[in-house]
């Protein structure tokens, strides 16, 4: 009984809700999420100019050493500095994450828009394809591609990008379809505005905030997928460092050097939690209605 009541109040009494974010940057999820991600990003960026040791540096005298002044995060069984690996791994994670999201959006957004704008026949066809790709696990798709093309960064990016693009296409189609039912789209048609201009001027500006939230979440999914692929030995080939492979390599020595598992695991977790908080915060900031509800619920 409570939902219709709240709806009734909103439709009858709600004062006009501004469409643009006002004081949303105070959202705690956004701030914490952004801080966590910035930390990862900083690791990746600093690694471009400086890291404690070189990538190939091994210290045979200090294998499986614990954290110390010399090796902040200890070393692995070959004597490689784990903090260096972690920094360079962050670079891989961020790069593959961003590139996969770019691929996913380059495929998903146009496909979703096409489905929403075209007639029922095309829409059904696209929805069918999207559903199949969504049902097909990204990891399985990646393994398939790797067996055909061999493991490489490019294959990992394409595989993750294609896998994620289905979800992007689905969301784009749903949000765009909602916009298409608005009278301002019909009004634009009666103004003689062509379909491409309708997409550019009316549809995209009203769905980009949803897509932006989706992009942050997709980044998190991509980072996990990359770590999983590397863990299975199907991701970025050595010597390029990766959190997934660090995990895999540390597995055999986990009883002697547990910190070697902890650190890359923590890095993946921080990234994913950060991305989700950021996405949540963005949604709160960009969706004024949700923001109001939360504020009301807080009191």
């Amino acid at each position: 009984m409570s939902t219709p009541l709240v709806e009734a109040v909103e439709t009858i009494e709600a004062p006009d809700i501004p469409d643009r974010p006002r004081r949303g940057w105070r959202s705690p999820s956004f701030v914490v999420g952004a801080a966590l991600l910035l930390a990862i990003l900083a690791l990746a960026l600093v690694s471009l100019v400086w890291s404690p040791y070189g990538l190939d540096h091994t210290d045979p005298t200090a294998r499986l050493a614990g954290p110390s002044g010399q090796h902040w995060a200890g070393t692995d069984r070959l004597g490689r500095d784990q903090f260096t690996q972690l920094m360079l791994g962050a670079r891989t994670a961020v790069w593959i994450g961003l590139a996969s999201v770019a691929v996913a959006f380059a495929i998903g957004v146009p496909l979703g828009l096409l489905a929403a704008a075209a007639g029922r026949f095309v829409e059904n066809a696209v929805v069918g394809v999207i559903d199949i790709v969504i049902a097909f696990p990204t990891l399985l798709l990646a393994m398939l591609l790797v067996t055909v093309y061999g493991a490489s960064t490019g294959v990992a990016i394409s595989a993750i990008g294609i896998g994620v693009s289905a979800e992007v296409a689905r969301l784009t189609r749903i949000s765009a379809s909602r916009v298409f039912t608005e009278d301002y789209v019909l009004a634009a048609r009666t103004c003689g505005t062509g379909p491409l201009m309708i997409l550019a001027r009316h549809v995209l500006p009203n769905i980009w905030h949803t897509l932006l939230v989706q992009a942050t979440l997709a980044f998190g999914i991509a980072v996990i997928a990359e770590a999983s692929l590397s863990y299975l030995g199907l991701g970025t080939p050595p010597p390029a460092p990766s959190w997934g492979r660090m995990l895999q390599e540390a597995q055999s020595t986990v009883s002697v050097a547990p910190w070697n598992v902890l650190l890359p695991g923590l890095a993946v977790a921080v990234t994913v939690v950060g991305v989700n908080l950021l996405g949540d915060g963005l949604r709160e900031i960009l969706d004024p209605q949700l923001r109001q509800q939360r504020q009301a619920a807080d009191r």
Binding site: L5, E13, P15, Q295, A296, A297
Partner: peptide, 21 residues
């Protein structure tokens, strides 16, 4: 008219105001 507070008054008389008010 809409926004005059008439429906809120009605909800208040039944203890049905949304949370936050």
């Amino acid at each position: 008219e809409s926004g005059s507070g008439k429906s809120l008054t009605a909800l208040a008389l039944l203890g049905l105001l949304p949370p936050g008010m």
